[in-house]
Structures are given as C-alpha cells and as structure tokens.
C-alpha cells in the first residue's frame, strides 16, 4: 500500500503533528482563546504528564471493559451465527432483531441498561458488548454459509453429519470472516466502553476514562479532558493493533489457494 521507506512513514506524521501543534499554539495566542475553551498544546502535555497515573489506570479500566465486552460479543455473536448457519428458519425469524440491535442508538438505551443492571462495571461491559456484537454476527454468519460447493460435496460424499460439517468445514472456513468482524468490532467495543462509562459515571473505586472525562468536563478541566481523549484514542489503536496481529496470524494459517500452475 505505502511504498515509502519506514523513516519517512514515521517522520511524516510526526512532522505534521509538530506543525499542527505550533499552529494551535500560535492561534491560541493570536485570538486570545481562554484556556477553558482551548488550552495550549504544552498545557495539555503538562496535564497528561501530571495525571499520568490516573490516565493509565483509567485506560486500564476502560481497556478491561472493552476487551471483556469484545470477548463476550465474540462468544455470543459466534454462537448466534452458528445457530443462524444451522437453520434458515431461525435466520429468518431472528435476523430482523439482529438488525434492530444494529440500528438502535446505544446512547438512547444506555440509561435503560443502567436502570436494569446498575451503575457498575458490569453495565459498561454490557454496553460495549451490545455495540460491538453486530459485525461479529453478520461476518461469522456469512463466513459459515459461504462455503465452497466442492468442499460441501466432498463432505456429503463421505456421509458427513451436520455436526462434522460444522466443526471440520464451516467453522474453520469462517475463521477469516470472524477476524474481519473483530477488526470492526474492536473499535466499537472501545466506543461502547467509553459511552457506558460516561453514563455510569464515577461509581466504583476505580474509574475508567469515560467516568474521568465526565468529572473533568464538570470541573472545566479542559487540558485534562483533551489528555483523556488522547488516551482513549491510544487505547483504540492498541486494541486495533492487537486484532491486526491476530489477523495476520489467521491469514498465515488460513491462506486461501493462490493457484500457481507450474509443477516441480
């Protein structure tokens, strides 16, 4: 995709960042923007450094919620997809509700979830799970169903049972689709966790980034708030990179036929 040497690929975005930071700094001076609205970049850096331990522990809490939410949505989503793959009847009956899950604005039902499940970590995981489950269900279902006809015939000719076809053919074939779904869902799970925390607020002893941001906003600690937003972004990137590593592993193990012709 990108053919530039590694040094350029690293230097270019960093250079751009520095330029933007300098412009930002000058603009705040130039237009006399009050720090409550937009603090200078150095102030933000300072704020990040000062509250580094809180940010790290907050990020860790949010990461746990997102990762747990993603894990649960992967398990439940895959299970639902397997059910879907086994009967078109189940698929037809349930699919509209899965679409509902995708279209319902999670921000709207988060308060309801808090009423049901309480203002606690569990609810944050639940929000993260609900928001990240749809790509898993739809990708895995399509992976389980779009099986090479020759492979299906091969299994039929051996008299394979439905279970054998599922375990030895459909599930391995769907691994790549699952990883594709995870790539989308991992970002959603972080969003879900933060939205959940924004609603749940600081109820527990250890607060996630969302809860911290709630408090910072209330106290007009804008520099800290921007620092927390950056921590959120970083968190999303870390999770995405983890999924990418998983993706590369899956591609290596599950490579499709490239079909070159010459015999040795």
């Amino acid at each position: 995709m990108n053919k530039s040497p590694l040094s350029v690929r690293i230097a270019a975005p960093i250079g751009l960042f520095v330029v933007v930071a300098i412009l930002w700094h000058l603009m705040v001076d130039w237009f006399k923007i009050p720090p409550v609205l937009l603090p200078k970049p150095l102030k933000v850096l300072e704020a990040i450094w000062e509250q580094r331990t809180q940010l790290l522990s907050g990020a860790w809490v949010t990461f746990q919620a997102a990762a747990l939410g993603l894990a649960v949505s992967t398990l439940i989503g895959s299970f639902v997809a397997i059910l879907f793959s086994q009967s078109s009847w189940i698929r037809t009956a349930l699919y509209p509700y899965v679409i509902f899950l995708q279209t319902v604005p999670i921000v709207a039902i988060a308060p309801l979830l808090i009423v049901w499940s309480g203002a606690q970590f569990r609810t944050v995981v639940l929000v993260s799970c609900i928001i990240s489950i749809f790509p898993i269900i739809s990708n895995v279902t399509s992976g389980l169903l779009s099986i090479d006809q020759n492979h299906l015939d091969l299994f039929r000719m051996q008299g394979a049972s439905r279970w054998q076809t599922l375990v030895k053919l459909r599930i391995p074939s769907a691994v790549r689709s699952l990883v594709q779904g995870l790539r989308i869902s991992c970002g959603l799970s972080v969003i879900g966790a933060i939205v959940g925390e924004l609603f749940v607020g600081n109820s527990g002893t250890s607060d996630g980034l969302g809860a911290m941001m709630n408090a910072m906003q209330a106290n007009l600690k804008t520099a800290q708030l921007i620092g927390a937003i950056m921590a959120c972004t970083l968190l999303g990137i870390v999770l995405f990179l983890a999924i990418e590593a998983l993706n590369r592993w899956a591609l290596r193990r599950w490579t499709i036929d490239t079909g070159f012709e010459s015999d040795r």
Binding site: N150, L154, M157, K168, W254, I256
Partner: peptide, 29 residues
Amino acid sequence: QHKLAFVFQESALLPWRSVYQNVRLPWEI
C-alpha cells in the same frame, strides 16, 4: 456411496489443512 470417490475440477483441498491432514480427512469423517 462409500465405495465412490470424487476428484473435483479444482483440487478442493481444505486450505487450513496440510497435505497429510487433507488426505486424512475422509477417515476423520
């Protein structure tokens, strides 16, 4: 049907299995 075997136009090997495991497959089923 168990006395028949089919060789497909494309090799139809399972891409996640090694040659050995592919050949083994019918007896796993």
